[in-house]
């Protein structure tokens, strides 16, 4: 048969989450934090993996943003999905490895963390506020759907951390 192929509890340095503050001070603080995070990403040695995966995500989006991008009637990856994927990557703690990126036939962007055939975690991200994920950890398997608005769901972070 053949098919063609076309943990630590720390959240990492500068992990940010959405601010609920509405005061001017809160906004200023949030902006400073965002600027600090951007400057961190431009650090060659530390920010490179994240920059690389962001670049890969852009490439995947460009290749699959039109209908039937795989020749099998795949749904296009929407700009909203692309933005959501970038949001996920920005929220990913810097102490976690960055994923491989691919487009899915349903128009989602997929992220995969692969250690070995029996140790891997995959997820799909869409323009909706949901993340679908599945993981294999030796003889154990897990899968589910979680809400993703600003913060990466705990179940997803735990799944990724469980691999390393």
């Amino acid at each position: 048969m053949s098919t063609i192929v076309l943990s630590r509890p720390s959240r990492g340095v500068f992990h940010t989450q959405a601010s609920n503050g509405i005061s001017d001070e809160a906004k200023t603080l949030w902006q400073s934090m965002a600027e600090l995070q951007n400057s961190f990403l431009t650090s060659f040695s530390i920010g490179k993996p994240k920059r690389d995966v962001l670049e890969s995500t852009t490439e995947v989006f460009e290749e699959s943003c039109h209908p039937d991008w795989d020749g099998y009637s795949a749904a296009p990856v929407s700009f909203e999905t692309y933005l959501k994927a970038k949001k996920f990557l920005s929220a990913l703690p810097t102490n976690l490895p960055t994923p491989e990126v691919s487009a899915h036939p349903d128009g989602q962007i997929g992220f995969e963390w692969f250690v070995a055939p029996n140790r891997q975690f995959v997820m799909g991200i869409s323009s909706e506020d949901e993340l679908a994920y599945a993981g294999i950890f030796g003889i154990n398997k897990t899968s589910g759907v979680e809400l993703f608005i600003d913060e990466i769901p705990k179940a997803v972070l735990e799944g990724i951390r469980r691999l390393f």
């Binding site: 098919t3 192929v5 795989d70 099998y72 009637s73 795949a74 749904a75 491989e100 691919s102 487009a103 899915h104 036939p105 349903d106 997929g110 995969e112 995959v122």
Partner: peptide
């Protein structure tokens, strides 16, 4: 990549 095996919309 698992994505290779995901089904088409049909």
């Amino acid at each position: 990549k698992p994505a290779v095996f995901l089904p088409a919309p049909n």
